[in-house]
Design a protein around this nucleic acid. Sequence first.
DNA 1: TTCATAGTTATCGTATACGATTTCGTACTT
DNA 2: AAGTACGAAATCGTATACGATAACTATGAA
Lengths: 228, 228
Amino acid sequence: MTETAVGSTAVEGTAAQSKSQQAYAAVKARIVEGTYTPGYRLVLAKIAEDLGFSVVPVREAIRRLEAEGLVKFERNVGATVSGIDPTEYLYTMQTLSIVEGAATALSAPLIDPVSIARARAVNEEMRECLEHFDPVRFTALNQDFHSVLFEHCPNPHILDLVHRGWNRLASLRSSTFRFVPGRAQESVREHEALLQLIESAADAETIEKAARQHRAATLDAYLAQAKQ
Amino acid sequence: MTETAVGSTAVEGTAAQSKSQQAYAAVKARIVEGTYTPGYRLVLAKIAEDLGFSVVPVREAIRRLEAEGLVKFERNVGATVSGIDPTEYLYTMQTLSIVEGAATALSAPLIDPVSIARARAVNEEMRECLEHFDPVRFTALNQDFHSVLFEHCPNPHILDLVHRGWNRLASLRSSTFRFVPGRAQESVREHEALLQLIESAADAETIEKAARQHRAATLDAYLAQAKQ
DNA sequence: TTCATAGTTATCGTATACGATTTCGTACTT
DNA sequence: AAGTACGAAATCGTATACGATAACTATGAA
């Protein structure tokens, strides 16, 4: 549906983009990178001025971000960066566990050995990362790892839903792993288990369940932490 | 996210809607009811004139419909009603099988006996409908039935995805069942089985699998038919 | 002191206007 | 006769302008 490359902060087209698209990319980047923090008030006129556009394309950009859930919009009041309160986080993670699980299962048979090797290398980096723990880097690698697993999903709709979920999460500044460091180790282990399932061509149901469980476990760890 | 009541063609707010929203509702209604058939060229100026608005709110409406996948938009060219070619249909059904399955499973423990009775009544009507078969009516009832099952889903994101899926399907004029009449009988039977699972408080996994399978079977029937 | 109300400001919503791009038809050339 | 180039029409993209709405502030009465 939308070409929402998970990690790309870079501009995609060369210059043949409409200003709406540019505005969309710009605002989204600012949200993801944290310049606009949750709750931040997005004033159309100001953004338009910053970008050197008029407000019209900015409006469209905001509307699109609204559709993706990154901003909340209230009529005659304005837009704010929708900041993932804990409940939102829960819902997003649960949704993602479902769609990402499905995407991974559908993708699994299509993953070539080269990709698996790449994923394994990423996971190895993550393991090293555990020593001098850097949550931000760890999260980035985690994203890379999972991208390899689900990016081959042949159903573009599902893939799009996965991307949207990750984007939502990305607007939460600093990764789950900052809050739940203990989870990181388990996570790395589960990654390896997932890879082995895929290599051994396990059936779709098993893979789906494992992938879903992997994410659900992260959510549970977060909840347990939050409850204290 | 969006208040996309699955079946409502009626205007939701009284009159306190922005023209963008009115335009959105109007165009969407025309798509769903079939006035704008797939491939139909949506010319902004013309729609604006029909509605008595200027083009600006119409643009936003179209953009929103684009985000939902009901229309396709090409820069400097225009918008067309995105007509579900068979591949799209397949993807949509597959996606829906996954999210609706999950929604139904999450919803199941929260469904009160009254709702179950209502669903059963609807299914009974469907059974009667089988005699003097009316595919359109049957499809409408089918939607009602499933709405009861998933509408209690506590995760609004997932619920929204389910609504979007149904909407996509709705823009396909005349129901799967017109094409695969044989599937209707099975469908009614499976509905009853689903209800019994829910009543007996079966575990989430069982319900999810059953709900997903139910939809997947419809898809398979369609594919088998199409292949001939 | 507190509450209600009127006025002010900030911001959004929509209309109109014009420039930019694409598409289609026609005439001209080979 | 076929292909190419030019030009006109249709349509989109964006800027500017102004009216509408909501939030804020200050003033007055209870």
